[in-house]
């Protein structure tokens, strides 16, 4: 680990200014991902700016029914909040499906969204990786690609986004509040994370110095109140997703009135399955319809074939997981 300095400002604006003044400075929140990357040599900042004194740890309800989650709220506190558990069950379930009790006590809401990929070639500073350096090639494409993307990938990167929380936030149309060098702004969660394209070094649309200050959950629609998160992984706990699904469903008279489907473990960002959602609205809430809808979504899938393990299995896995999850939300056996 290269030496760095440490600062702990008392004002958010000072934290932002500290980064603006130093292109190699980084924010430190819960540290669960950043400390790992410091040790691995994946990031080598000159300065860490601790934002724990400047980000809110409160969850507050706004007049329009929005639930505002301070960026400093620990993941475990977010999942335990009774308003979150009752109104946005997919959000609580997603957090609880991730990491461990200790890590959830440490990790912040803002930091969770900014987690970087768990692609082993990204984490190994000795193997080439375009996400670490645009001068290097992607090692995963012909390597161990079992965990990698089937949707929206590019020649330069097939990494997946590891956050469970972010997948659920996409399904409930959350908004991200950001304080930047030019003031505050709001970014819809669906536009927050990027696809890799030819610059996979950037996971999100944030610019250097942008600080996530809060995440807003809009007043829940019926399909959000009836939502859940389903994570498929090899180990029964404490493992990243092979694939995951955040889904919400409102059925009226046997017909899908509203549906939300977001997929994790399939793309460089949480993947809102808009094709499947459109295909399902107004259709009967049956296994056959669910299957047809997700199959349509996955027509764009481009699985990776690799001698060390490809990911074509994710197509039947996503299909089965989505069908099972929607069936459960419709009152059947999941």
């Amino acid at each position: 680990m290269k030496p760095f300095t440490y600062a702990r400002p008392d004002e958010a604006s000072d934290a932002v200014a500290a980064l603006v003044a130093d292109p190699d400075a980084r924010f430190l929140a819960g540290g669960t991902n950043l400390l790992d990357h410091l040790k691995l040599g994946v990031v080598e900042p000159s300065q860490l700016v601790d934002v724990n004194r400047v980000t809110s740890t409160e969850i507050t309800e706004l007049d329009d029914g929005t639930l505002r989650i301070g960026a400093g709220v620990a993941n475990s506190d977010l999942a335990a909040d009774s308003r979150v558990r009752r109104r946005y069950p997919a959000v609580a379930a997603a957090i609880l499906a991730g990491a461990s009790g200790q890590l959830r006590n440490m990790a912040s809401t803002g930091g969770n969204l900014l987690q970087r990929t768990r692609c082993p070639y990204f984490a190994d500073a000795t193997t080439p990786c375009t996400k670490r350096s645009l001068d290097e090639a992607c090692s995963a494409r012909e390597g161990w690609a079992r965990y990698h993307a089937i949707l929206g990938a590019s020649e330069s990167c097939i990494a997946t986004h590891p956050s469970d929380l972010a997948v659920a936030l996409v399904a409930v149309d959350a908004q991200v509040q950001v304080l930047g060098p030019d003031g505050a702004r709001t970014i819809p969660i669906g536009e927050f994370h990027r696809l890799p394209g030819d610059d996979p070094t950037r996971d999100t649309v944030l610019e250097h110095g942008d600080l996530v200050t809060a995440v807003d959950l809009p007043a829940p629609a019926p399909a959000v109140t009836n939502s859940t998160y389903r994570k498929v992984r090899d180990r029964a706990s404490y493992a990243f997703a092979l694939v995951s699904v955040a889904a919400g469903l409102e059925v009226r008279d046997g017909v899908v009135a509203d549906v939300r489907i977001a997929l994790g473990g399939v793309a460089h960002k949480p993947w809102r399955a808009t094709t499947a959602e459109a295909a399902l609205r107004g259709r009967p809430a049956t296994d056959e319809e669910f299957r047809a809808a997700i199959t349509a979504e996955l027509e764009a899938a481009e699985p990776v074939e690799s001698p060390l393990g490809g990911n074509a299995y994710k197509i039947p896995l996503v299909t089965g997981t989505v069908v099972s999850t929607l069936r459960g939300l419709a009152g059947g056996t999941s």
Partner: peptide, 25 residues
């Protein structure tokens, strides 16, 4: 343990990549 022959190393060389049974298993 997955050996990537291009690099001559076990690529899943940590306890997040190499799973051993956890309590819930």
């Amino acid at each position: 343990s997955v050996v990537d022959p291009r690099f001559g190393e076990v690529i899943n060389h940590d306890l997040a990549g190499y799973h051993i049974a956890a309590n819930a298993d």
